[in-house]
Design a protein around this nucleic acid. Structure first.
Lengths: 253, 253
DNA sequence: GAAGTTCGTTGCGCATAGTGCAACAATGCT
DNA sequence: AGCATTGTTGCACTATGCGCAACGAACTTC
């Protein structure tokens, strides 16, 4: 009995036929490689393009954003951190505060990268630490951009400032999506503030959260907007590393 | 008229359903997500596993080596260099010589990364430079492991030592595959020696070549074998970054 | 710029591949 | 050990995927 689905197998063969020597393929070349009619190859290509696995470049076909996305997903967190390292260094040099990169793991935020600021009073080493989503800036970014279905009730209070109402949290998440950044003011620990933004991959999915954090006597309301802007610039740089196309006309400086 | 192939589209939907919150999926979950019968989901999964796009982990399915491979292909050379940076630094500290990472571009080797040794007499900046494959150690590795079909006749002589016979080159490539490393002794430039090894990705394809190079008065025949071994260690580390599974029992120290 | 060539797309009819069902096997839980 | 759940596979049926042919688009040559 056949377990192999012919048409299904063929799109995978198309993807598998890309390599270092063949980064662009034509419909005709795909037909030759697979031994099918060019009309079949054209339909296979159209299906791949529609799902984002290929993109058209003039008459050639190239690997598309969805391949970037799942390719990065298949890589480990250390690889994501390596790709983000340069931008995180830049963000730290710009802000003078501790920079973190966090990813979603189950229903928690996992800190996978950290760059320490110059100040003696800063943040201890958080790499490998998990935090609940609702009480960290990075966590709120992941909730806002990866899906509110990840909210885990009941919401535990860490300080007097922790948001424990699901309704209030949802309202805050909607605001985060509007602003494009999240704020944490002493909700995880008294005196600890943070600003965080999403890092999007080539398919527009939120792949990580990037944050700057520090003590509230350095990070006060006057600094939030500037820090958010700097985080967004760094997140955009990381996004380029993750395969996001550069919109040349829109790229802000 | 339908351009979309239903079965083809379904395997792509399976791949697309992986995300940060869902790095493992079951056959039942896939059936639910796609709205198909579990027998259909089982066959889709089997097709994806067979082509290396998924792998089985107990009863769960995870993204497989072929996704790593094409994912990295979709990323740029700067990303590959970022992933290799740590291992290249290590190799440089071990050997004291200049380290290069090169990839195949068309029928040439493109140098995409470099770490400089401490000696004043070393190698100038080669990042962005292309070399013909037959006369560089990295190039010979790419010929040996990416396919001899890439040999471009006639073979240009750069020095008196350059191999210009295709037959002799093929014999040397066979030896390189046996040894697992390539040597260049003044074939590109008089007095310039290099040792290079392949870097394999998760699907076992040669993704890049890693080399150590220096002047012949420091890199002489007594050093080749040791340098090759060190390059192979570094290449293995890069391979792990590219998603190669660690064979725990076989991993040499 | 026109003509010719090649590549890619799309409607159509036909044959087969893909589907769900049912039964069974494998795995996990209590 | 027994039960529940998940996953696999043979089978029959039908809906899909296929190649063909014709046409449009893009590229090359003169």
């Amino acid at each position: 009995m056949r377990n192999e689905l012919q048409a299904a197998d063929r799109v995978l063969q198309v993807l598998a036929s890309f390599d270092s020597a063949a980064r662009e393929l034509s419909v005709t070349r795909i037909a030759d490689t697979l031994g099918v009619h060019k009309s079949t190859a054209s339909r296979l290509a159209t299906t791949l393009v529609r799902r984002g696995f290929l993109k058209r470049s003039k008459r050639a076909l190239r690997l598309g954003p969805e391949v970037n996305r799942i390719g990065l997903l298949a890589l480990g967190n250390r690889d994501l951190t390596a790709l983000a390292a340069e931008a995180m260094q830049w963000l730290c040099s710009q802000t003078g505060e501790t920079v973190h990169l966090a990813v979603l793991e189950g229903r928690e935020a996992l800190n996978i990268g950290q760059v320490d600021g110059p100040a003696i009073i800063g943040i201890g080493n958080w790499i490998g630490r998990r935090t609940k989503l609702h009480c960290a800036a990075n966590g709120k970014v992941l909730l806002a951009f990866c899906g509110e279905h990840l909210i885990a009730s009941p919401l535990e209070a860490y300080t007097a400032r922790t948001v424990t109402s699901v309704k209030a949290l949802r309202a805050e998440l909607a605001q985060i999506r509007r602003l494009g950044w999240a704020l944490n003011t002493g909700e995880l620990e008294d005196g600890l503030n943070a600003v965080a933004v999403p890092v999007f991959d080539a398919s527009g999915h939120c792949r990580a959260a990037l944050s700057v954090s520090g003590p509230s006597f350095r990070m006060d309301p006057n600094t939030y907007s500037r820090l958010a802007g700097q985080c967004q610039q760094a997140a955009r740089l990381i996004g380029f590393r993750l395969g996001v196309d550069k919109p040349t006309a829109q790229e802000p400086r």
